[in-house]
Simulated scan of single mutants.
Amino acid sequence: MEHYEPGYPVDNRTDGMRRRAFQSHLGDFELAAARVVARLTGERVVLQDDNSAPAMVDIRIDYPDRSPGYVEVVTDIDRSYAAMASAIRGQVQVPTPELGRVWYVTVSPAANIKQLKRELPDRLANVQLSGALFETVAWEQHLNLHDVEAVRALAASGVVRLASRPVVTDEEGKAIMYGKGAGGPAGQNWDAFNDWLATFLHDPRQVDVRAKLAATDAVDRHAFIGMSFSTPWAAYHTLSDDYQGLPSRPPKVPAEVTHVWVWSYPIGRCIAWFPETGWFDPSTRWATA
């Protein structure tokens, strides 16, 4: 028997779908999005896409007094970035006891992680022999322009930042690999946010999102967008928890979309735009716990 509790979505997906979603780079973003929709609306929200029919919209909102609304969940994430981030999973440590240092190696989506792991000890040994220890680290390093050939070779392999320090007592040398994250100047930039959102919603790559919503012929057709570290920095950082405020103008939505949610996932703010209310912060309007 189906269990329903206000504020929590009903999940009709298969066990395999839930497991794959949980194991992905962003985790189960569909479930997180459905929880936000359920908390805000207070209605029965169903994760309905169980792959039993083609082009089924991800989420259905069951209203007691009118026809259902539908929500399609989509993330703005570059596939190569997702592959890199899944391979790194936070960080990867490569033992390099012979180096006597701890190296911090940040890689881009262009890096071949398996190959780089095998080659790092020798490559970093060459960097150390050159005297380039990167003990003082600038934000913009431009390793591809470095004077040392061994450093430029690492850059050509997808390494974008380097730092190191001597080992401490009872510690062995190692290289710690990180995936490249978003970064850039601090500051809230609603113009950059609006430009990114308009481009994303109208992008040919989102044609399936628009088509699935249009096919419902519903009055309420929501696009729930998850930003990621591969979203342009100025737009992504604008929804940082460090800031408040909302966009001053409505989004440029395609005809197939009537409502928009944007979440700087997983550590930023979620905001939404409804045609009858404009932009708002759902966390200030929860209908349920």
Rank of each mutant, 00 (worst) to 15 (best):
D281K: 07
A175M: 05
M84E: 10
V127Q: 05
T41L: 14
F200R: 11
T106W: 02
V167A: 07
A125D: 07
Y178E: 06
S164D: 06
N12Q: 15
W261K: 01
Q115N: 09
N194A: 14
V151C: 08
H3E: 10
Y4A: 12
A32T: 11
R285A: 15
G245D: 05
D58F: 07
Y178F: 15
A272H: 07
G181Y: 00
S24W: 01
T277S: 12
N126F: 00
D50Q: 09
R18P: 03
P247R: 02
V46C: 09
D78Q: 10
R79P: 06
V107N: 06
P266F: 02
A150G: 07
T238S: 09
A33F: 02
Q128S: 12
F193P: 07
G158R: 02
L99N: 00
G278H: 08
M1D: 13
D170K: 12
S248R: 13
T75H: 10
V151M: 08
S130K: 01
A218Y: 12
E140H: 11
P282I: 01
T258S: 11
T169G: 06
A32V: 14
R66L: 09
R44G: 08
D49N: 15
V209K: 08
D65N: 12
S130G: 15
A155E: 11
A153V: 15
V102R: 04
V137S: 07
R66A: 12
A34E: 09
W196V: 00
G184N: 04
N12W: 14
F274I: 07
T136W: 06
R165A: 11
I113T: 12
A175Q: 04
Q23P: 01
A33P: 03
Y4F: 15
Y104E: 14
G184C: 07
V102N: 00
Q91C: 02
I271V: 15
G69I: 02
S248W: 05
H237N: 15
L47N: 08
P247W: 05
D241C: 08
G158K: 01
L116R: 00
A192M: 02
P6R: 00
S108K: 01
D122L: 13
G173H: 08
W261C: 03
R101V: 04
L213D: 03
V262F: 04
P250T: 00
P68T: 03
I267E: 13
A38K: 06
Q48D: 04
Y265E: 00
F134I: 12
L26Y: 00
P254E: 08
P185S: 13
F29R: 06
T288R: 15
S130I: 06
T169Y: 15
L197N: 10
P250V: 05
H202N: 14
A192H: 02
P6S: 02
Y8K: 13
G90Q: 09
V57S: 11
W103R: 05
R79S: 14
R13W: 10
A85N: 10
A163V: 10
E171Y: 03
W263I: 00
R66C: 13
A182P: 07
I61W: 15
A83R: 13
A156E: 13
P251K: 01
D195F: 08
V46A: 12
A182Y: 10
G42H: 03
R101T: 00
V159Q: 05
Q128E: 11
R152V: 06
G158D: 04
G173N: 05
T75N: 11
R221A: 07
R60H: 01
